[in-house]
Amino acid sequence: MERLIRKGAEADIYLGEWFRKEAILKIRKPKPYRQSELDVEIRKKRTLHEASFLMNARKAGVSTPLVYFIDQNKAEIVMQYIKGVRLKEMISDRKMDNIDALCSEVGRCIARLHKNNIIHGDLTTSNFLVVKNRLVFIDFGLAFFSQRLEDMAVDLHLMRGVLQSAHIEVADEAFNKILKGYAEIAGMNMIKDLVRKIKEIERRGRYARVE
């Protein structure tokens, strides 16, 4: 009945039904390579975070799949099936006409999350689903609450890294659009602070050398 539709890095994603509605079953299966206590700790924590932050994000004004059911011990979540295309494929297939608009919307959504002290923790183009012209954010397993500028900057730094590694041909343009969208919600001052912080983070981590 359930069909495996994707093997994510963390979880297996099945398409099935939940009370006669199409639904996604996301299971964080044990990873045999991981020490078992650590493995259980990670899977439980992320399942719980994911479920609660899918809801928190919605309250902050960002669309996410509805959560139908969660089993923390089995590290399973049943959620609404979103029939959409990932932004990753939209960019790769060069459906360029609305990419700009979508990137601005990505920026606005991230700003809404940050405004509510929600750090997504895993901003990548495979975690934005596009349905018609709307954006749905998924994969909140690494999300957490924070008011620190640093955490928000790391969030955006990761986003930029993904664009530069996976979508180099549009990376700079897309990131600028994201910042523009972000600024619409959070204001220019906030963006200035963030950009400064991102630069600092990049200087710090990169090419750490034996000291």
């Binding site: 530069q164 180099i168 990169r206």
Partner: peptide, 28 residues
């Protein structure tokens, strides 16, 4: 290594960095 902790793959003429350390390398 001592100097690097990088996850990279080749695409469009360069080694693209998919992930890296935000502070220490694993060697450090």
């Amino acid at each position: 290594s001592g100097g690097h902790t990088i996850i990279t793959a080749f695409s469009r003429g360069r080694w693209r960095v998919f992930g890296e350390t935000l502070d220490l390398t694993v060697g450090q």
